Simulated scan of single mutants.
Amino acid sequence: MALCLGIDTSNYTTSVALFDGVSGYNLGRLLDVPEGALGLRQSDALFQHVKHLPEIFAALRAEGRLDGCIAAVGASTKPRWVEGSYMPCFLAGESQGRGIADTLGVPFFPCAHQQGHIAAAAWSAGRPDLLDRPHLAWHLSGGTTELLYVQPDGVSVWAQKLGGTSDISAGQLIDRTGQLLGLPFPAGKALDGLYGQADVCQNYTVKINDLTFSLSGMENKVRELVERGTPPANVARFVVDTVVKAVLRTTDKALDQYPGLPVLCSGGVASNSALRAALRDAVFAPPQYSTDNALGVAILARRALTGGSRL
């Protein structure tokens, strides 16, 4: 069966995926972030992607994953599919993807990182039908907290921002909390682990205006808690519960405007267990496909190759 190859080079992960219309496989590697740092400069991220991609392809070859016929190549070329959206780190995946496609004589299909997240989440959750119908989607990651109205756009998906944060993302708040607590970056998994150890349940109610809310003030509140000697588990629960409550309330408000639409959650923050428990009716990808990955890129390449919704 012909394979479609997908490449994604975000500011956090280098990943390559293969999709044959039935099954998919993703191999990724987190970028190396210096201890105590909150992410990387674009130049450093781009340099690491250039180094990591040949290593990932070599590993795929060693696993026998590249033995089939590659019929198309896709890559995420920008953060969002809107005019002016640009990050240099995506040049690494795009340049290699175009080079591979030209070498093999197969088509190259660009997409946005956000579109890939939506496709990977829908497919891995067992809901590929969402790619062919309107729905609401949360993109909750280290750099993005956006509530989207998603609808089919030919063989891809088009996403319109409805709301989310007006300043720092949920992932940034979580990572900055992790830095204050001395946790490794990215801090989502560590905060999730601390959450269940908390002996105090409290949160801060953020104000929501037109499906938009602010999290920047929370960073100062977290700093105050840490400076007062609040146990790390209680700090973790305070932050997670605040984020979860804001997402849940915003979702409910959006469903008042768009009743009956399914809600899909993607992005690394969507791996959080408390969020999954709170949004019981939402569609969540398995944790390994919530974080940055290239599977959605490969899925969209397959859809573009076949010319329609059938994978």
Rank of each mutant, 00 (worst) to 15 (best):
G6L: 13
I7R: 03
N11P: 00
S15R: 01
V16Y: 15
V16W: 15
F19Q: 04
G21F: 00
G24A: 06
L27W: 15
R29C: 09
L30Y: 15
L30A: 14
L31N: 00
P34S: 05
G36A: 10
A37R: 08
G39S: 02
L40W: 13
L40C: 11
L40H: 08
R41A: 08
Q42L: 08
D44M: 14
F47C: 09
H49M: 13
K51E: 06
K51Q: 13
H52Q: 14
E55C: 02
I56P: 11
A58F: 07
L60H: 13
L60P: 07
A62S: 10
E63A: 15
V73G: 06
G74N: 07
S76D: 04
S76Y: 04
S76P: 02
K78S: 10
K78C: 10
W81E: 14
V82N: 10
E83D: 12
M87A: 08
F90H: 07
L91R: 14
L91T: 10
G93A: 02
E94K: 00
E94V: 00
S95A: 11
G99Q: 04
A101Y: 08
D102A: 11
T103Y: 14
T103W: 11
F108K: 02
F109V: 08
H113M: 05
Q115M: 05
G116S: 09
H117D: 06
I118A: 03
R127F: 02
L131Y: 05
L131D: 07
D132T: 10
D132C: 09
D132M: 05
P134V: 01
L136N: 05
W138F: 06
H139E: 12
L140G: 06
T144G: 11
T144Q: 10
T145N: 00
L147G: 00
L147F: 04
V150Y: 02
P152D: 12
G154E: 08
V155T: 12
W158T: 09
A159F: 01
Q160P: 08
K161W: 02
D167L: 06
S169T: 12
G171V: 07
D175P: 03
D175A: 01
R176M: 11
T177N: 07
G182R: 12
G182W: 15
F185M: 03
A187I: 00
A190P: 12
L191N: 01
L194Y: 00
G196W: 10
C201I: 14
V206G: 09
V206P: 07
D210S: 15
L211F: 04
T212G: 03
M218I: 07
N220D: 02
R223D: 13
R223F: 15
L225W: 14
G229E: 13
P231A: 08
V239F: 09
V240P: 02
V244E: 06
D252T: 02
D252C: 00
D252H: 03
K253W: 04
L255S: 11
D256F: 12
D256C: 13
P259T: 04
V263F: 09
V263P: 14
L264K: 04
L264S: 03
V269M: 11
A270Y: 00
N272C: 08
A274N: 08
L279V: 03
V283H: 15
F284V: 04
F284R: 05
Y289Q: 04
S290M: 00
G296E: 03
V297R: 01
A301T: 05
R302L: 01
R303M: 03
A304R: 10
A304H: 14
L305C: 03
T306H: 02
G308S: 07
S309N: 11
S309L: 06
R310M: 07
R310S: 12
L311K: 05
